[in-house]
Amino acid sequence: MSFDCSEHLNYKVLHLTGEIDLSNSSEVRRCLLDIINQDYSVIVDFSELTYIDSSGMAILVEGLNTANKKKTSLKIAAANGAPRQVLELTRLDQVFTLVDAVSDVKE
């Protein structure tokens, strides 16, 4: 698993690659909450994410909740395959704003 951060418009883009599971989700949590606590809106890019377990999903839920409190936003881009199925299984696809690609976010 690796992750890096870039920018798109006024958003910070957290680009996740590989598999997120119990062994590395705490690292992603620190990074995500760090960005949100700096009052940025975030797009979490799933385009190269092959697997995410429920600890990864929990981190995104915590991130969304923190962003909502700060009146910023957290969107998920390019959720396909297994990560998409986990979102649907947990019905979080109805909680997060999902976009097909980072470039689809226009404002």
């Binding site: 119990l22 705490s26 429920s54 600890s55 999903m57 929990a58 839920v61 947990t90 979080l92």
Partner: peptide
């Protein structure tokens, strides 16, 4: 695990 208690709570509620 050494997950944060917030993460553990949300994971539990998801399940």
């Amino acid at each position: 695990t050494d997950l944060d208690e917030n993460t553990i709570s949300i994971m539990t509620r998801l399940k």
